[in-house]
Every structure is written in C-alpha cells, then in structure tokens.
Design a protein around this nucleic acid. Structure first.
Lengths: 230, 230
DNA sequence: GAGAAAAAGTAGCTGTAGCTACATATTTTA
DNA sequence: TAAAATATGTAGCTACAGCTACTTTTTCTC
C-alpha cells in the first residue's frame, strides 16, 4: 500500500490527516485495490454502489450511454480523483452513470460506511474525512454545473471556445495540451466529431486558435471570449 | 417560527431530529426568514454564498443567464427544498448559478458554519444534520445528472418524451400537471418555445400525448418510450 | 364585462449541425 | 518496414430547430 501514499495524499478526502496516522487510517478504512484493463467497466448505470473510488493510476471516464450506442463523457478522472462519492450518499445508491477505465488503471475502493461511521478505535481523523467528503461533494456539484453550462451553449463554436478558454485557464498558459482526442472531445461536448472538426478548422482559419493533435494555442483570447457573448 | 414547523419537518436536512428538540435546533442554527417578491433575485451567479436556503413558501428557480439574456432553468424548488448547499461546501463559495423567486416566497437562510460545527451547548442533533447534508448533496448530484441526461438528448421529441415520462412516473399517473408554463418548460429543456410548441402539437397529432395547458396525458407510453431509443 | 396584457400556438424561412462517404494521416503490430 | 488499424480531416446533402412575425387564446385588472 505504501507505493500509493503519494497519490492518496493528494486526494482531497485525506486532506488534513497527519502523515503518521496515514497507515492506520488506510487500514481502518478497509480499502481494496483493484486493477482494470483498458476499456474495462468499473460499474454500470443502474448498478447499486456502496464503495467510493479513488483513482491510483491510469484514467477513468464517467459516462452515459444511450440505447443507440451514443456515449457522452461526463468527466475524465486522473489519479488522486474520487468518484461515486455522490451516489453512495443517496438513499437508493443506484448509479445514474457508468464508469470505465480509459487505459489500464488501478482504483482504491473504500466502503462508504467506513468513512462516515467512526470506528471503535481511536480514529480521530474520521471527523476530517467527513468534512472532506462534504467539500468533495460540493466541488463535484460545481463541476457538474460547469458541465451543464457547456451543454447549454447553443453553438458549436461557443462550446469549443468555452472548453478551450477553460483549459487554457487551468493550464495557466495560452498553449496547452488537452487530455482528450477528437472523438473523446466530441463525446464530451456532446456533438458529432465531423461537425466539430469542421468548426475547429474554421476557428483556425479565422485566426482564433492554432492546433496540432492535442496541442492547442489560443491566438486571440479576446475574440475567442466574444464567442460566448452570444 | 412555529408556523413553519410543518414545512421544515419535511426538509431532508432535519430528518431524524426528534420533535421536542426542534425549537432548540432552530434557535441554535440561527436561521433568519427572508421574504422575496415575485421575480426578485436571492443571489446571483458569481456571488459569494455562506448561507444555505430552505424554501418555506412560494417557488424558487435555480438558473443561469448568459450575456445575450437567454436564461436556462436548472431546477425549480418547492417548499421544504434546500438550495445553495453545494456551493457553501466548496473552498471558494462562489455560486455558479443564480436563484430567483418565481412568485412571492419566503426562505429560511442558515449560516453553513452553524450546521457543520457543533456548538458548545448540548446539541446532539448536529451529527444528524451532517449526515443529512451528505444525503442532500448526494441527491442533488443525482438530480444534476438527470438534468444532464435531458440536455444531452439530441432531438426535441426525445427531450419532451424524457421529461414527460419522468413527470408521469413522479406523479404515479398517466395524467398529471406540470409545474411549468410553456416558456419555463422551454427554458428548462433549453430549447426555443416555438419549436417546442410545434413538436408538442406533432406529438399530439401522432397520438402519443394529449395536453391542455399544464395538464398532460400520456396516451401511448410504449411508443413515447421508444422515442428515447434513438 | 370590456379592454389590456400576457401566454400559447402557427407558418415560412434560414442556418447550422448531423450524417454518409470518403481521403489522408498517424499509430500499432506483426 | 510493410500492412493493418485507428485517428483525423473534408465535402455535399439533409433534417431539424431557431427565428421572426404573426394570430389566437387565456388571464389579469380596472
């Protein structure tokens, strides 16, 4: 388990927990590490979920698939990120979403009960964990709101502009790499890949952006931001 | 304050709190009742929020407005419902959404700190409150996911079918009233009112539904459900 | 109950995103 | 390194939702 300490320490759930209590805490939480192959599913929409997950390595995507086979990527999770924490807090615990490994991945699964219920032992960190859970839930809420905002934008250019400006802000630079390929980005923005490619080319022709593969450069952030003022 | 007890008791936040501790609890939480007129704003997107709200009377809408004046209704809240509980749990506490009274309304505002921090007095119900907060956050998460699903549907008919089937399920009947007028429903589904009216008429002509004002009747739930299998 | 105001429905035109069907890259793997 | 598989870009056509400009209906208010 020690090999994962660095990743876990970055997880918001364990924020504020003193380092010397770490081993004890992980033991008390009774987490188990599971490995998933690329494309393997972790749980499906409709499944009853009783564990929260922490990504230890690889990348996980949270998605919805409809009956026609269209998939919509809701979120992409890197190591140290949590998932399913919203589901386990509900009464039914039925997941509205599917989670799948985008590449070979390792996940720490923790029974939800262990987090919220203080055990008999002298585990004073449970209070921290509960506080942290609330922060995570609140922040997930905000990120879902941002996703909603992206989807409510009407035009293709607006969606791309919003996504790229946000990515630029997160990276703190006008030049940045995005974590998604074209097909994945289209699924994330809930548009067709071909239409998206067409618009990206137009935006390049208009001198708004430059792009090569997953690398993007914002050439005129002002005009790009104006796209959103529709 | 006693006049609001019935509404408050139905609020998930106070679930499991014994009735005789109710007065004590409300005093300890230091909530204040505020009245809002129809159309009045409670807080704006970008505001720093430190109170959670409980709707006591009237209806509140959670929405986003873009610079062009288009508004998108994310949720409509009836009495006993909470709002802003996701925002106050985040680090920044900056609201991504605006909240507005749809009609004359009363709201109980509770400082978030009072909920999560045990006070010195013998308020053993704080533990219940924290557990309840998690449930609320988890459920808000699920409802945002359902909203996301609605928005990711491509066609007008799919969105309407999804909305109506859900409303029918919630009401436990094929005949039901929806809480939104046409303009509001269009804002909720993020479509134009005129296109929506057109499609509603088509669906009526196709024998899928019948409608008059806010009253809907699902005539052929099977075929209506098939609309979603695109 | 009459007039005003708001809400709901309708029609025609237009623009944009989706789709199919490719062409061209790029990466994988045998 | 060649061949296969995957990813990406392009073009033409089509369908559908948005918009404007109405009409009709319902609700409010005096």
């Amino acid at each position: 388990m020690e090999q994962y300490y660095d990743v876990l320490r970055k997880c918001v759930l364990f924020r504020g927990v003193e380092e010397n209590k770490f081993r004890n805490l992980l033991y008390c939480l009774d987490g188990q590490v599971k490995k998933y192959h690329e494309e393997e599913y972790i749980f499906f929409a409709g499944d009853k979920v009783s564990h929260v997950g922490v990504v230890l390595s690889g990348r996980i995507e949270i998605l919805k698939e409809n009956l026609a086979g269209n998939k919509h990527i809701i979120a992409v999770l890197d190591p140290s990120n949590m998932f399913a924490e919203g589901i386990v807090c509900t009464a039914s615990r039925l997941s509205p979403v599917t989670s799948q490994a985008m590449e070979d991945a390792e996940v720490l699964l923790i029974p939800y009960e262990r987090i919220i219920k203080s055990c008999g032992a002298a585990c004073d960190f449970h209070i921290s964990l509960i506080q942290n859970m609330m922060v995570i839930l609140g922040e997930k809420n905000v990120s879902l709101n941002w996703k909603l905002e992206l989807l409510t934008l009407k035009g293709m250019r607006e969606k791309l502009a919003s996504y790229l400006l946000n990515a630029s802000k997160e990276n703190g630079s006008n030049t940045f790499l995005i974590p998604l390929n074209r097909t994945e980005l289209a699924d994330f923005l809930n548009v067709s890949r071909t239409s998206m490619c067409r618009e990206l080319t137009r935006m390049k022709d208009d001198g708004l952006i430059d792009l090569y593969g997953r690398s993007f450069k914002i050439l005129d952030s002002e005009r790009l931001a104006e796209c959103l003022e529709t």
